[in-house]
């Protein structure tokens, strides 16, 4: 819970100095019930465009500077798995990804790296998702996820099935990881959310599919947790996921969820999607492994409607 400690300290410092640097900080301090209340654990925004919702949500968490320090290397990991146009919602919204990169650069990040180990041919995915263009114009850099030499074998100490796996160097070496999945229906894993999105940083996904997919997803979530998870539920693929067949599979739900806790993020998102968290097996398995909590009632949630 390093992140939470950090947030506590930063808000404490803000209070002590008596200066409210950001509107977000003030909102969270008051909104959560007073100066000494717990900091915000999860922000859920609905009703706006992807960029607008992100601007509001990140302000609630103290701005991107609360996560990214000057000179750091940041990995932004969206879902870019498919050669599909943005309106198909098979990939994370490019406007959202571009906005996050922009916030990271403004917070002083030295490098902002974006990649995915795609399912379709990667150059087409990067291009047709609109993510490559959005990232480059925001000052980030796209790296390939299809070069095996960029992956290093790691052990997953808490893994039950997944003991070792090859992970992309950008995930291992970056100071800050911002996980930006798009919420989708998923034929095999029921839903694809923040934990499932991390499948895109490993080399051999076949092993996961062969050896209890849900357990492997939960196992890998114990390995190295992202600094922040941003679930894009602006356009949502309600069926035929994760690739989708056409725009008919997509509903414009206009939600965004931000939290450092992957289990909480996925629990909240599943409820937005309209099914019970227990239906998505890896969420419960991850909670058992101590990755996070499904008990949203115990969390300090900031809900914003735009």
């Amino acid at each position: 819970m390093k992140r939470r400690d950090f947030l506590k300290k930063s808000i404490g410092a803000t209070v002590a100095s008596g200066t409210f640097l950001s509107l977000g900080g003030m909102n969270s301090a008051f909104g959560a019930g007073g100066f000494f209340a717990a900091p915000v654990d999860l922000v859920a925004v609905k009703g706006g465009g992807p960029e607008v919702m992100f601007d509001r949500a990140i302000a609630e968490l103290g701005g991107m500077k609360a996560f990214v320090k000057a000179g750091q290397t940041v990995l932004v990991k969206p879902n870019i798995g498919w050669d599909a146009a943005p309106e198909r919602a098979a990939n994370t919204n490019p406007l959202l990804v571009g906005k996050i990169v922009e916030h990271c650069k403004n917070a002083g990040a030295k490098r902002v790296i974006v990649f995915d180990n795609t399912c379709d041919e990667w150059t087409r995915c990067y291009k047709n998702s609109g993510i490559e263009a959005a990232v480059k114009s925001a000052g980030g850099e796209m790296v390939t996820g299809k070069d095996e030499k960029m992956y290093r074998e790691v052990t997953v100490p808490k893994g039950k099935v997944l003991k070792t796996t090859k992970v992309h160097q950008a995930y291992l070496d970056s100071d800050v990881i911002i996980n930006v999945p798009v919420m989708k229906n998923h034929g095999g894993a029921t839903m694809t959310l923040s934990m499932k999105n991390l499948m895109g940083v490993v080399w051999d996904r076949g092993f996961w599919h062969r050896n209890d997919l849900h357990q492997c997803i939960a196992d890998f979530a114990t390995f190295k947790k992202p600094t922040l998870n941003v679930i894009d539920a602006f356009n949502v693929m309600k069926r035929n996921g994760p690739r989708g067949v056409s725009v008919d599979d997509v509903v414009n739900m206009k939600y965004l969820i931000l939290t450092p806790d992957m289990v909480a993020a996925d629990t909240a998102a599943v409820k937005v999607f309209g099914i019970e968290p227990s239906a998505v097996k890896h969420i419960g398995l991850a909670e058992q492994l101590g990755v996070g909590t499904t008990k949203l009632d115990n969390l300090n949630i900031k809900r914003i409607t735009i």
Binding site: H186, G187, G188, R210, D212, L213, H214, R243
Partner: peptide
């Protein structure tokens, strides 16, 4: 008896579709 769906995941037309099976699997 574990979940997979890798084939359907990649199918562009959903000619391969995951349908309900035993124990909450598809």
């Amino acid at each position: 008896g574990t979940a997979c769906g890798s084939c359907s995941e990649h199918c562009p037309t959903q000619a391969v579709k995951m349908v309900p099976y035993k124990n909450g699997l598809t």
